[in-house]
Design a protein around this nucleic acid. Structure first.
Lengths: 138, 138
DNA sequence: CAGGATCCCGCTAGATACTG
DNA sequence: CAGTATCTAGCGGGATCCTG
């Protein structure tokens, strides 16, 4: 995520600075949390996955649960979540070293909201797909 | 948005097909609605902006309210929303032609959820930014 | 007015290889 | 095990010009 999007730069240049639409920090955050892997990692850590209880997970466990994530994106996303205070990273000096990740309270509060999004998707996807087919047919 | 992400292809290739994490339709939908302009357009059409009531908006009104969106992305995003049954597109044969966009009931139900996300961002951004500074300092 | 068609650039996800 | 480093291709998205 860039520090400032082209849209924001343009708005700034034109001196039309709209709080919600362009340069507002909450917009930045909205961008952040609507990231693909962010959503999945938070769900995974919250235990919001079939056959899993909430609790800390190790790096390798995460990479197994979040099917399809590359090492690069996993590390990168975890770092950004840690930076934002949404997850904790705990290193246990065993050999080899053990690293676990867990949600913070802040992270859990976010998860509550994210869960609703997931819920909406699950409830309405049939309807959306029906619309999509009708549109493509017409 | 691609029909199938690289992650999905990989999952399919490995025959590890996880419902929520890889190829599930609800995942696709989550991707869709976490789009930047989708969020903003829905908010705009819902009237979830300073000094605006809900109601239909014209193409040019949208492009003015959603600061920074290009014509291409505006059209593209509106089309996809229409295809998914989230907005309606109404053409009135005046000269020149008048086109208005409005949320459907489905779109409004989504907006309810999106609003929560926005709300979360607005309430917790200070905390997140504090974490961020601390992290960068350390 | 409401777009369609093109060109083109920057970013970034992803693959691969390496390491404490 | 839990990452880091490097390279590259692909495409999202912006700018620009054009039209019914």
């Amino acid at each position: 995520m860039p520090t400032m999007t082209a849209a924001q730069k343009r708005a700034r240049a034109k001196n039309e600075y709209d709080a919600f639409l362009a340069g507002c920090p909450s917009r930045e955050l909205l961008d952040r949390i609507s990231d693909k892997w962010v959503a999945l990692l938070i769900a995974a850590l919250a235990g919001d996955l079939p056959a899993r209880e909430p609790g800390p997970l190790r790096y390798s466990e995460l990479s197994r649960q979040v099917v399809g994530v590359s090492q690069k994106m996993l590390t990168q996303t975890l770092r950004s979540l840690e930076r934002d205070g949404l997850v904790t990273r705990t290193v246990t000096p065993t050999v080899p070293v053990t690293v676990t990740y867990d949600l913070t309270d802040l992270g859990r509060s976010l998860q509550t909201v994210m869960r609703q999004l997931k819920s909406w998707a699950e409830q309405h996807m049939d309807e959306v797909f029906a619309h999509r087919e009708a549109y493509d047919a017409g």
